[in-house]
C-alpha cells in the first residue's frame, strides 16, 4: 500500500462542523420546551415548517450547484438556521410567512452569497426581517398569549388550524407581547399601573422570564463546551443594560431594564444569534465591539424605533461592520510591539 504524503498536523480534535451545530441545537431545547409550555405548540409547528423548507431549499441549491447533497445537509447549518428563524417568528404566524422567510434565508441570504461560511448576514435574521417588513400584520398579530391567561388551552390541532387555514377567532388566543404593551402604554401610564396588567404576572412577564433563563442556560452550556466565547453575549447584555440604566432609568417613560433583558428575544439573540460565527466579528476585541454595537442598537431601536423588538435589525446592522471591525482589532502577535491595524496600504 502506498504511503500517504500529507502535510502536518496528522491528528485533529474529534468532531466536525456538524457537531458544533448539533451542540447549538441541543442548547436550544430547554427554551423550546418552555416556549411550548407557556405559549402553546405553535412554535413546534413553525419549527417543522421552517426545517422542512430550509432542508428542501438547501438540497435544491446543492443539486443546482452540483454538490454532494448529503455531505452538506450533514453539517446541520440549514437546520439550525430554520430553528432559530422559527423561534423568532410568532407562534401562530401563517405557514406561508414561515416558508417565505426560511426559503429566503437559505436561498438568498446564504447560498447566493456563496453558501456556508460566506454569507455576510445572518440568514435567519435576513429571513425574519424580510417577513417583518413585508407582512407586518401577520407578524404582529400572531403572538399567542401565555396559556394561563387564555380561557382555553391552545391545542395542537387548533394551532395547526390557525397556521394553515382560517385566521377567524385568532384574536381570542393572541396578545401583544410585553415589550409592545409597555412601549405603547408608557406614555400614558406609570410603571406601576402598567405592571398591574395580567401579562406581566407577578415578577417580570409571564413565561418570558423563564424562557429567557432557559436560553441563557443553553448559552452557558455552549460557553462551557467552548462552542463560542463569552465576549459577544456578555458585551451584548452589558451594553443593553448600560444603555437602559443611563437613558431609561425612568421606568414611567421607558421600558425598564428587567423587561429589556428578560422579555423578547434578548437572550436568544445574545447567546444564539449574535454569536453566529460566520457573520460575527472574530477577533477577541472585535467580538466585544461587535456585541456592544448590537446591545446599543437593540436599545436604540426598541426605544426610538417603530418595532418593539429589535434583535434582527441590530444583528444585521452589525453584520455590515463585522469584517471592518476585524481589520482594526487584530490582536498583538507574539514578538510584535503593537498590534497591526487595517489592511496593508497601497498594495497590489
Amino acid at each position: 500500500m502506498a504511503l500517504l504524503n500529507i502535510s502536518s498536523p496528522h491528528t485533529s480534535r474529534p468532531g466536525d462542523t456538524g457537531g458544533v451545530m448539533r451542540q447549538v441545537l441541543y442548547a436550544l431545547l430547554p427554551g423550546i420546551v418552555l416556549l411550548t409550555w407557556f405559549f402553546g405548540p405553535g412554535h413546534l409547528i413553525q419549527i417543522g415548517i421552517a426545517a422542512i423548507t430550509a432542508l428542501a431549499c438547501e438540497a435544491l441549491v446543492m443539486v443546482l450547484r452540483k454538490r454532494p447533497v448529503l455531505f452538506y445537509l450533514k453539517d446541520y447549518s440549514a437546520l439550525l438556521t430554520a430553528v432559530l428563524l422559527a423561534l423568532a417568528l410568532p407562534p401562530l404566524c401563517p405557514w406561508w410567512v414561515t416558508v417565505i422567510a426560511s426559503a429566503f434565508a437559505i436561498i438568498f441570504a446564504k447560498h447566493l452569497y456563496g453558501g456556508m461560511g460566506y454569507n455576510p448576514f445572518n440568514p435567519a435574521m435576513v429571513g425574519f426581517a424580510l417577513v417583518l417588513i413585508s407582512f407586518p400584520v401577520a407578524m404582529t398579530t400572531s403572538w399567542t398569549g401565555p396559556a394561563e391567561l387564555l380561557n382555553a388551552k391552545l391545542t395542537f390541532s387548533q394551532s395547526l388550524h390557525f397556521i394553515f387555514s382560517a385566521r377567524d377567532g385568532i384574536d381570542a388566543v393572541t396578545m401583544a407581547t410585553p415589550l409592545d404593551v409597555y412601549k405603547h402604554q408608557a406614555a400614558m401610564q406609570t410603571s406601576d399601573e402598567i405592571f398591574k396588567q395580567p401579562i406581566f404576572g407577578s415578577t417580570i412577564a409571564i413565561g418570558w422570564e423563564w424562557i429567557s433563563l432557559a436560553y441563557a442556560l443553553g448559552g452557558i452550556y455552549l460557553l462551557w463546551r467552548r462552542i463560542f466565547t463569552w465576549h459577544i453575549p456578555l458585551s451584548v447584555l452589558t451594553a443593553l443594560s448600560i444603555c437602559s440604566v443611563i437613558f431609561g432609568w425612568d421606568a414611567d417613560t421607558h421600558v425598564p431594564l428587567s423587561l429589556h433583558l428578560f422579555t423578547g428575544a434578548t437572550m436568544l439573540g445574545a447567546f444564539f444569534i449574535a454569536t453566529d460565527p460566520v457573520t460575527a466579528s472574530t477577533t477577541p476585541l472585535g467580538k466585544i465591539i461587535y456585541g456592544a454595537g448590537i446591545g446599543i442598537l437593540i436599545y436604540v431601536i426598541r426605544t426610538y424605533g417603530a418595532y418593539p423588538d429589535a434583535i434582527a435589525f441590530a444583528v444585521l446592522l452589525m453584520n455590515f461592520a463585522a469584517a471592518f471591525i476585524d481589520q482594526y482589532t487584530q490582536p498583538r502577535t507574539y514578538g510584535h510591539n503593537k498590534a497591526k491595524r487595517g489592511l496593508p496600504k497601497g498594495g497590489k
Partner: peptide, 21 residues
C-alpha cells in the same frame, strides 16, 4: 513548498484526506 490544498468547494464527499500531494 507545499501546494495549495484543494478548496473545500472543489472536494467531493468521498475525498478523505487533506489535499493529498
Amino acid at each position: 513548498h507545499w501546494q495549495q490544498p484543494l478548496s473545500p468547494e472543489k472536494l467531493i464527499a468521498t475525498d478523505a484526506g487533506r489535499g493529498i500531494a
